[in-house]
Amino acid sequence: MNWVVFAILALLALTAVTVARLRQLWAAVMFTGIYSFLSASWMMILDAPDVAFTEAAVGAGISTVLMLSTLALTGEQEQPTKRSPIVPLLVVLVTGGALIYGTLDMPHYGDPNAVVHQHPDPSFVERSLDDMHGLPNVVTALLASYRGYDTLGETTVVLTAGIAVLLILRRDEMERPAIANRAKRRRRKANA
C-alpha cells in the first residue's frame, strides 16, 4: 500500500511542477485535470471516498471542461514574461516555511489520539448513528444534518456563480457601444 501512496505523492508533485513550467495552456489544463485526478486517488486512500468522487467529477471533470472551452475562445499559448520570478518565489518560500513551521506541533498523520478524532465526544460517527437512525454514509448524514447549513450556503454559492456568469457573459446591443467601436477600430488598425 505504501508504495502506491508514494507513487501518487511523487506524481502529484511532478504534475504541479509541470503545470508551473508549461507554456502550452492546453497542456497545462490537461495536467491540472490529472492533478485533480491524482488528488482524488489519494483522497480515496485517505478514507474520504465522497470527496474523492466529487473532486474527480468536479475538479478533473467539470473544471477541465470549463477551462478547455474558455481556451477555445481565448487562445492557448502563454507568452514568456520578462518579469523576474524572485519576488513570488520569496513569498512562496516564506509562506511555505511558515506552514512547515506550523506543522511541527501538529498531531502526527493518522494519530488516533489527535484532537480532531477525540474532541466531539461522542464522535460525529457515533452521534450520527443515534441521530440519523443508521444512515450508512456518515458524510452524507453530516452534510444533510449538522452541517446542513453549509450545504445551503454551498448551493447559494453555485447559484451566485450561475447568476454571475450570466451577468458577465450576456451581451447586449444596448450596452457599451464604445467598446465595440474600439474593438472594431483595433481590428481595422491590425488589418491595415
Binding site: 475538479g59 481565448t74 460525529f124 452534510l143 456568469v165
Partner: peptide
C-alpha cells in the same frame, strides 16, 4: 472510522472552488 467532518467541509469547499473558477473564466472570456 476516519473522521468524516473534514470530508464534509471539503465537499462544500470543492463546490465553492468550482464556482470561483467558473466566475473567473467568465471574466477571462470577457
Amino acid at each position: 472510522y476516519s473522521n468524516p467532518l473534514p470530508s464534509v467541509l471539503m465537499l462544500t469547499a470543492i463546490v465553492v472552488g468550482i464556482a470561483t473558477t467558473a466566475l473567473a473564466l467568465a471574466l477571462v472570456v470577457r
